[in-house]
Design a protein around this nucleic acid. Structure first.
Lengths: 158, 158
DNA sequence: ATTAAACCCGAGCGACGCAGTTGGTTTTTG
DNA sequence: CAAAAACCAACTGCGTCGCTCGGGTTTAAT
């Protein structure tokens, strides 16, 4: 789960696409002007989105893009995974097993990053394009009441 | 919340520091060899950690670093916020109000990224160094049972 | 058939931040 | 004093990101 501005652009474009969905498909140049994103850059993003099966294209004049599935069945996590390639295995993260299993004490943090990735994916896959459009954010997560630590103070974070 | 490998290194080093805490302070060169991180790079990270009040330094031979607070009172989120400077306000993210409020329709995704940031911070601030050491991960988050969407299927995501 | 609108593709570029290096200076212990 | 450590500042490869450029190819309107 990469989480760069590239993925953000893709989500912005997909939300725009879902918003202006009508009988006619939506052209990329329309999205480009509305969202102020470079047309060629959009083309690159949508090429990936199409390969991932998230959108369908209609060629020729009056053509454009349509959501492959409904806006309620397209999750934000899918968009980001389609656009950002799946990270380059820094140090020990993922990469299967090698290099990390060797010295367990060195990778105490491994579980932490893995669990963080899970949390992010869990959240993003709980939000659909329709949710964003209607500003109905997040089937809310609540903290387990049996949690040992986690003081609610949290005075840090500017 | 930046979430780069820089922050990961910082957390790795802090976990190492917490693990080897004794009467004597821990020198950076010890951490450097154990965690295989460049010494000078560690110095830069710990300069920030010190300014953030997360560690205390002892100068001279036999000197090194100590946790400012206990390992149970140092949260992972604090470490990451200390080393990664607070993001560069891409497009509309944060930056107060300007450029985003103008055209509301353009920033439908704004709430989404904000909520995602909240989720990440919430998770990372629920984990202390002690939790990582003892592999007691995450005062677990559970999904609210009243959630409307969020099918548990989630067949996507390679 | 012509033309224009739209998608498709690949090479390349400027800027930025990360990871690391060099080369010092202070401080403190022995 | 000499050695060990924290401190400090500047600089440098290098990769990636966001984006441009310049071509295509396919389709539909006329």
């Amino acid at each position: 789960m990469k989480l760069s501005t590239k993925g953000r652009y893709a989500v912005m474009a997909m939300v725009d696409l879902a918003r202006h969905a009508q009988a006619k498909p939506v052209s990329l140049s329309d999205i480009a002007t509305r969202q102020e994103i470079s047309l060629s850059y959009l083309e690159q993003l949508f090429a990936r989105l199409r390969r991932a099966g998230l959108v369908k294209s209609v060629r020729g004049p009056g053509g454009g893009y349509r959501l492959a599935r409904g806006s309620a069945d397209t999750r934000v996590s899918e968009i980001i995974l389609a656009v950002d390639e799946p990270i380059s295995a820094t140090r020990c993260t993922e990469m299967g097993a090698t290099g990390c299993r060797a010295d367990r004490s060195k990778c105490l943090t491994h579980d932490l990053w893995e669990e963080l990735g899970n949390q992010i994916h869990l959240f993003l896959s709980s939000v659909t394009l329709l949710d964003v459009l209607e500003r109905k954010l997040a089937p809310r997560f609540i903290e387990a009441p049996s949690a040992a630590n986690a003081e609610p103070s949290m005075a840090a974070a500017s």
